[in-house]
Measured scan of single mutants.
Amino acid sequence: ATVGSICDLNLKIPEINSSDMSAHVTSPSGRVTEAEIVPMGKNSHCVRFVPQEMGVHTVSVKYRGQHVTGSPFQFTVG
C-alpha cells in the first residue's frame, strides 16, 4: 500500500450483512479514521480506505460490535 492511494482489504465472511459491520484504521501516529465497507457479493466484503502516512497501520473490522476472525489486521504502508 502507498500513502494517498486507495487500499482495499478483501474479506470472506459467511452469512453476515455488511450493514452490520464497522471498520476503523489506526495509523502509526495513533490517528483513527473510519473505513468504508463495500459489499462484494455473497460472503465477500471489501474494507476500503486511503492511508495518510507511512508505517504499520491497524485495521479493526467488527460485526455487531465484535471483532471478526483475524481482526485487528496489520499492514505496512510505504
Rank of each mutant, 00 (worst) to 15 (best):
A1L: 01
A1Q: 04
A1G: 15
A1D: 08
A1T: 06
A1N: 15
A1H: 15
T2E: 08
T2K: 09
T2S: 06
T2I: 05
T2R: 10
T2L: 04
T2Q: 09
T2G: 04
T2C: 10
V3Y: 07
V3K: 06
V3Q: 05
G4T: 01
G4H: 03
G4V: 00
G4Y: 02
G4N: 08
S5R: 07
S5I: 02
S5L: 03
I6D: 01
I6R: 07
I6Q: 05
I6V: 12
I6T: 08
I6E: 05
I6K: 03
I6L: 05
C7R: 00
C7L: 04
C7Q: 01
C7E: 00
C7S: 01
C7M: 06
D8N: 12
D8Y: 05
L11F: 13
K12G: 01
K12S: 11
K12V: 12
K12W: 08
I13C: 00
I13E: 01
I13K: 00
I13G: 01
I13R: 00
P14H: 06
P14G: 05
P14I: 06
P14C: 03
P14M: 03
P14F: 03
E15W: 05
E15L: 09
E15H: 14
E15N: 13
E15F: 14
E15G: 15
E15D: 13
I16N: 05
I16V: 10
I16D: 01
I16M: 09
I16C: 00
I16G: 10
N17D: 10
N17P: 14
N17G: 06
N17M: 07
N17Y: 12
S18K: 06
S18N: 06
S18P: 06
S18W: 03
S18R: 05
S18A: 06
S19A: 13
D20N: 13
M21V: 14
A23D: 00
A23Q: 04
A23R: 03
H24I: 07
H24P: 02
H24D: 07
H24K: 10
H24A: 09
H24M: 13
H24G: 10
H24Y: 13
H24C: 11
H24F: 11
V25T: 13
V25F: 01
V25R: 09
V25H: 12
V25N: 14
T26G: 10
T26R: 08
T26F: 12
T26A: 10
T26V: 07
S27G: 15
S27P: 15
S27T: 06
S29Y: 04
S29T: 15
R31A: 13
R31I: 10
R31H: 13
R31M: 08
R31Y: 14
R31G: 14
R31E: 12
V32Q: 12
V32M: 11
V32H: 07
V32P: 07
T33P: 11
T33E: 12
T33L: 11
T33G: 10
T33Q: 12
T33R: 10
T33F: 09
T33C: 10
T33D: 12
T33A: 11
E34L: 12
E34P: 09
E34R: 11
A35P: 11
I37T: 07
I37V: 08
V38K: 15
P39Y: 07
P39R: 07
P39V: 07
P39L: 04
P39W: 02
P39Q: 09
P39T: 12
M40V: 10
M40Y: 06
M40Q: 15
M40A: 14
M40W: 03
M40E: 15
M40C: 08
M40P: 14
M40R: 15
M40F: 03
G41S: 08
G41F: 02
G41K: 14
G41H: 05
G41N: 07
G41V: 08
G41M: 06
G41P: 12
G41R: 11
K42M: 05
K42H: 08
K42R: 07
K42Q: 07
K42V: 07
K42D: 12
N43F: 06
N43Q: 11
S44E: 15
S44G: 11
S44F: 03
S44H: 14
S44K: 13
S44W: 05
S44L: 02
S44P: 06
H45E: 05
H45D: 04
H45G: 09
H45M: 09
H45S: 10
C46V: 07
C46T: 15
C46S: 15
C46M: 02
V47R: 00
V47G: 01
V47A: 04
V47P: 05
V47I: 06
V47L: 04
V47C: 02
R48M: 00
R48T: 01
R48W: 01
R48Q: 07
R48I: 00
R48A: 02
R48V: 00
F49V: 07
F49N: 06
F49Q: 03
F49T: 13
F49Y: 03
F49D: 03
F49G: 00
V50R: 07
V50H: 03
V50T: 08
V50N: 03
V50P: 03
V50A: 03
V50D: 01
V50G: 02
V50Y: 04
P51Q: 03
P51G: 12
P51E: 05
P51D: 01
P51I: 08
P51S: 04
P51L: 01
Q52F: 11
Q52K: 11
Q52E: 11
Q52D: 08
Q52L: 13
Q52C: 08
Q52R: 10
E53M: 13
E53W: 05
E53K: 10
E53H: 07
E53P: 00
E53G: 06
E53S: 11
M54D: 15
M54Y: 06
M54S: 15
M54P: 15
M54G: 13
M54K: 13
M54W: 15
M54C: 09
M54Q: 10
M54T: 03
M54E: 15
G55N: 10
G55F: 03
G55V: 00
G55T: 00
G55A: 07
G55K: 02
V56W: 05
V56I: 11
V56H: 11
V56N: 11
V56T: 07
V56R: 09
V56D: 13
V56A: 12
V56P: 10
H57K: 01
H57W: 08
H57R: 01
H57G: 07
H57E: 04
H57I: 08
H57P: 01
T58C: 11
T58R: 13
T58Y: 14
T58G: 12
T58F: 13
T58K: 14
T58E: 13
T58V: 13
T58A: 14
V59N: 02
V59R: 01
V59E: 02
S60L: 08
S60K: 09
S60H: 09
S60D: 14
S60I: 13
S60Q: 08
S60M: 08
S60T: 09
V61G: 00
V61C: 05
V61H: 05
V61A: 10
V61Q: 02
V61E: 01
K62P: 00
K62M: 14
K62N: 12
K62V: 13
Y63D: 13
Y63F: 12
Y63H: 15
Y63S: 15
Y63W: 09
Y63V: 15
R64Q: 14
R64L: 11
R64E: 15
R64G: 13
G65N: 09
G65T: 11
G65P: 02
G65W: 07
G65A: 10
G65R: 10
Q66G: 13
Q66C: 10
Q66V: 09
Q66N: 12
Q66T: 12
Q66S: 11
Q66I: 07
Q66H: 09
Q66W: 03
H67Q: 06
H67D: 10
H67M: 07
H67I: 04
H67S: 11
H67R: 07
H67C: 06
H67Y: 08
V68Y: 07
V68L: 02
V68Q: 08
V68R: 02
V68N: 03
V68T: 09
V68I: 06
T69I: 02
T69M: 06
T69D: 13
T69E: 14
T69N: 04
G70L: 08
G70M: 10
G70C: 10
S71H: 04
S71N: 07
S71W: 01
S71T: 07
S71G: 08
S71I: 02
S71R: 03
S71E: 04
S71C: 05
S71K: 04
P72C: 00
P72W: 00
P72G: 05
P72A: 05
F73L: 02
F73S: 02
F73N: 01
F73Y: 13
F73P: 02
F73I: 03
F73D: 03
F73Q: 02
Q74G: 13
Q74H: 09
Q74E: 06
F75W: 08
F75V: 15
F75Y: 11
T76F: 09
T76P: 15
T76M: 06
T76K: 09
T76Y: 07
T76D: 15
T76S: 12
V77A: 12
V77E: 03
V77H: 00
V77Q: 01
V77I: 11
G78Y: 04
G78H: 01
G78F: 05
G78P: 05
G78N: 08
G78L: 01
